[in-house]
Design a protein around this nucleic acid. Structure first.
Length: 516
RNA sequence: GGCCUCGUCGCCAAGUGGUAAGGCAACGGUUUGCAAAACCGUCAUUCCCCGGUUCGAAUCCGGGCGAGGCCUCCA
């Protein structure tokens, strides 16, 4: 197996991953400012890095992953004023929404969500240290970072500080010594949330929370720092500058930036008005299918939802990209259902290996080939798009196997074929889990008794319909009117159910039904 | 204006020097009482265009055209 390679924004090339399996990896990914409900774009980073963590754990690393919650800033303050509520209440409500979205997309790997407001003391300590070292200066209640004191400022983005100033449209505050200087601490305006500090009442600047929280929870040097490509500048550049100035050590061994979500030709943004909230998308597509959509593309590329305008009433319910992903994802779910029918076991209860193993032996060589190629894709800078392709190839060969060995028909099923199918499907589950795909549709929430009634009714309908089918099949004369009439009735049942959104599937071992 | 990406089948997408994965859609077939699902087959001699390097390029270099991102809050 080739060693894991990761692309770092800092060096602009793929590098060998700096740690060995068995060691601990620390990961910090910039999280949301919780002032609005999460849109689909907010989920890209969490899903991508959740897959990164799952794969690292699979390779034998122990991973500690933090995502910060920015619960105080200008946008929150404005929004809370608009909504006639407090910053605290708004932040708590939107944080809950964010957590709910993560859960629906199977993002379970985040170990902690430090909040900015809970680390004000740490930030003051960091800022104070920067002032004492001469990297920052107070000015009329504000504190600024002095970019001219930082020799390698601009190294993350490859920006020349001089050029930056020339092209800058930033309105230069009179308090700044250099146009590129940025606020570490902002003096409070009346009515704003504020904390006491050596420089008077105020609140932290945008970038400082990440420095203080990362250093407090993960140490001065973290292994992976992640975030959206749009955060590269100024946020990560500034975060990097202040962190390394404060500690005197490298801040992150690898910088990973995920591509942004596009809607057809342009980016998805609140200012364009073409945002798709996660909650709205989930009305029409499962969280797992949405996750699949994100992981189907390499994380550094932009992800395209396709041409779609939520403001146009003639638009379909989902953007083309999600519609496509939804259909494609069904192949995974059907495989798990087929596994249940064919083996009599529950796919979702089958145990799978949780650790990588070189030189694995399988009943069929092609399983080994899929396993190897899946890992090669993941080793190559977490190429989930390629890995998903391998998963589809595996599914096709498993279905071919099940068809060939007649596994759906208990009377004709081939035992060797069944054993191979079981092993291969278990492998598919193992690989799917690495991506956080469990091959399932969301369970209906709190249907309870209604669920049982629907299930019972469907059994009844299927039984009655199969009685009619059996009678019809007894009549061997081809054009017998009675036969036609009986099949006509069975087809009416199926057609009407289809119109209700229920699909019947007649199989050798019996009839199954599903919604959709 | 400066910095940086990207342009692969109708759509999405992997592939970054060795002769084009995969998904969706479409068409033909097998299976089925008919369907659904599944399977088989067809579907890019070609990777925006023009040059160059090389035995060999979608992959490297130069130029052109087109799209996007960042430089201001943004995952």
């Amino acid at each position: 197996m080739p060693a894991l390679q990761v692309y770092s924004t800092l060096s602009r090339k793929k590098e060998p991953f700096p740690k060995k399996p068995g060691e601990q990896v620390t990961m910090y990914v910039c999280g949301p400012t919780v002032y609005k409900p999460s849109h689909v774009g907010h989920m890209v980073g969490p899903v991508v890095f959740d897959a990164v963590k799952r794969y690292l754990v699979y390779l034998g690393y122990s991973v500690k992953w933090l995502v910060n919650i920015t619960d105080v800033d200008d946008k929150l303050i404005h929004r809370a004023n608009e909504a006639k509520t407090t910053v605290k209440e708004l932040a708590e409500r939107m944080t809950a929404d964010y957590f709910d979205c993560l859960k629906k997309l199977n993002v379970t790997g985040i170990d902690a969500f430090p909040k900015a407001t809970e680390h004000i003391g740490d930030m003051i300590t960091t800022i104070d240290g920067l002032i004492k070292k001469g990297f920052a200066y107070p000015a009329e209640g504000d504190v600024y970072f002095n970019v001219s004191k930082d020799d390698d400022y601009g190294k993350l983005c490859g920006f020349d500080p001089e050029a930056l100033e020339a092209g800058s449209r930033i309105e230069v505050s009179g308090r700044k010594k250099n146009p590129g200087d940025f606020a570490l601490w902002k003096k409070a305006k009346p009515g704003e949330p504020a904390w006491d500090s050596p420089w008077g009442q105020g609140r932290p600047g945008w970038h400082i929370e990440c420095t203080s929280m990362a250093q407090r929870h993960l140490g001065d040097t973290i292994d992976i720092h992640g975030g959206g490509l749009d955060l590269r500048f100024p946020h990560h550049e500034n975060e990097l500058a202040q962190s390394e100035s404060a500690s005197g050590k490298p801040f992150a061994r690898v910088w990973m930036h995920n591509g942004l979500l596009k809607m057809g030709s342009g980016k998805m943004a609140g200012s364009v008005g073409n945002v798709l909230n996660v909650a709205d998308a989930l009305k029409h597509v499962s969280g797992e299918a949405l996750r699949f959509f994100i992981l189907n593309t390499h994380y550094r590329s932009p992800i395209d939802l396709g041409e779609w305008d939520p403001r146009d009433p003639k638009s379909p319910t989902l953007p083309p990209g999600l519609e496509n992903a939804k259909k494609a994802h069904e192949a995974f779910v059907r495989l798990s259902e087929r596994f249940d029918r064919v083996t009599g076991k529950k796919f979702h209860e089958v145990a799978v290996p949780g650790r990588a193993e070189d030189g694995r032996k399988f009943l069929l060589p092609e399983f080994g080939e899929k396993y190897t190629r899946f890992r090669e894709f993941m080793d190559d800078d977490f190429n989930t798009g390629g890995a998903v392709g391998v998963l589809f190839e595996l599914i096709t060969s498993l279905n071919r196997l099940a068809d060939g060995a007649k596994l759906e028909d208990p009377a004709k099923a081939d035992a060797n074929g069944k054993a191979a199918f079981e092993e291969g499907t278990t492998l598919a589950k193992e690989l799917g889990q690495i991506l956080g795909l469990f091959f399932e549709l969301p369970k209906a929430d709190a249907l309870g008794d209604d669920d049982k009634i629907v299930g019972g009714l469907m059994q009844l309908v299927i039984e009655l319909r199969n009685n009619l089918r059996a009678e019809a099949k007894k009549i061997t004369t081809k054009d017998d009117p009675a036969k036609k009439m009986l099949f006509g009735q069975t087809d009416i049942i199926r057609t009407r159910l289809t119109e209700l959104g229920i699909t019947l599937e007649d199989r050798p071992a019996g009839t199954t039904w599903r919604v959709g």
